[in-house]
Amino acid sequence: MNRFSNQTVLVTGGAGGQGASHVRAFHAEGANVLIGERAADRGAALADELGPRARLTELDVTDEESWAAAIRTAEETFGGLNVLVNNAGIQNPPALIEHTDQATWSRILDVNLTGAFLGTKAAAPALRRAGGGSIVNIASTMGLGGTAHYAPYVASKWAVRGLTRTAALELGRDGVRVNTIHPGVIATPFIHEPAAGASAAIADFYSPEPFAIPRLGEPADVTELLLFLSSPAASFITGAEYVIDGGLQLGPALQSEPA
């Protein structure tokens, strides 16, 4: 299928574990893809791999001027913007709230929340000019409950939910849909490598064995849902939240038949 032929998609954090999966899939479905990335070398390598319909845009999601430049690139290079995926995110090193410094708190919220806010702000006029489109915010199952030692990350992802719903109300009459995906534990470097300042990775102390689907998620699991939400097949869906976690939110599965 070519669900996104003649459309342009901007994915932030587009060369990371989930981001690269999203970029490749949109490209395979016919889209022009803009890889929003601070790691320019990694983003450029992915753009070179995919060819003329892919381009790196060096993007600091916390900077309004950087966003303006990314939107200009989309419109000047590919003629418009149809889909924005606010995928960029960072994790804090685990610590109790009382041991979390304000700089860490601010940095996590700047990237995970302010980045999505600035992206929505910058993209909304371009999506209107294109006749409508879609914004999908990649949040987390940590935005659905509390998780000890991760207050900045949890707070940022909870706030993305409110941002999504507000944007959906403001943009719906312009033909712009805004939705959220809450991935669980997905097998990417984000899970397998320690966050900056941390000594252990999430995968070191997490096991999916007790849950309904006893495996880590794969980036492709999230990508398939993202493609649906971004496509005309989801034209009546906005302000919605989709959990993709293999049943993590359900709690542990039964390990044996009850007596």
Rank of each mutant, 00 (worst) to 15 (best):
F205S: 02
D221N: 06
R173T: 14
V61T: 08
D41I: 09
L171W: 15
T100M: 00
G131H: 12
T12N: 09
A233C: 05
P125F: 07
V222F: 03
S106Y: 01
L250P: 05
P232H: 13
I90S: 04
L96N: 03
F236N: 01
A15D: 04
A54M: 04
R161S: 08
L144A: 01
T77R: 15
A234W: 12
A20D: 11
R42M: 11
G17E: 02
D41V: 10
A240W: 04
P125V: 13
G119V: 10
E257A: 14
A54W: 01
G246M: 04
L59A: 09
A68F: 10
E209P: 05
V243E: 01
K121F: 04
G51M: 13
V222L: 13
L34F: 07
V178I: 14
A200Q: 06
A240C: 10
E58H: 08
D48W: 04
R55T: 10
E170L: 09
A95I: 00
D221M: 07
A159I: 03
E29N: 04
N179W: 11
L96T: 08
G43S: 14
P189E: 03
S156A: 15
A253K: 15
A68K: 15
A126H: 02
P189R: 02
A203H: 01
A44C: 13
A47S: 10
E170T: 07
S207K: 03
A39T: 01
G175W: 05
G80F: 08
A200R: 04
V136S: 06
S140E: 12
S199L: 14
A198G: 01
T164G: 06
D41P: 04
A74I: 02
E218Q: 14
L163S: 03
D174N: 12
G239Y: 00
N92E: 14
T141K: 04
P210R: 11
E75C: 07
P189Q: 06
N82M: 03
A20V: 10
G175Y: 08
G14H: 06
L56P: 10
T238V: 14
L118G: 00
A25G: 10
A139L: 07
I97L: 15
A240E: 15
D63G: 10
L216M: 15
V11K: 01
R215Y: 02
L50E: 13
E65R: 14
L171K: 12
A196M: 07
N6V: 06
G17T: 02
E218N: 02
G146Q: 07
E209D: 15
G16E: 09
S106C: 09
G14K: 04
L225S: 06
T147R: 08
L59P: 11
L229D: 11
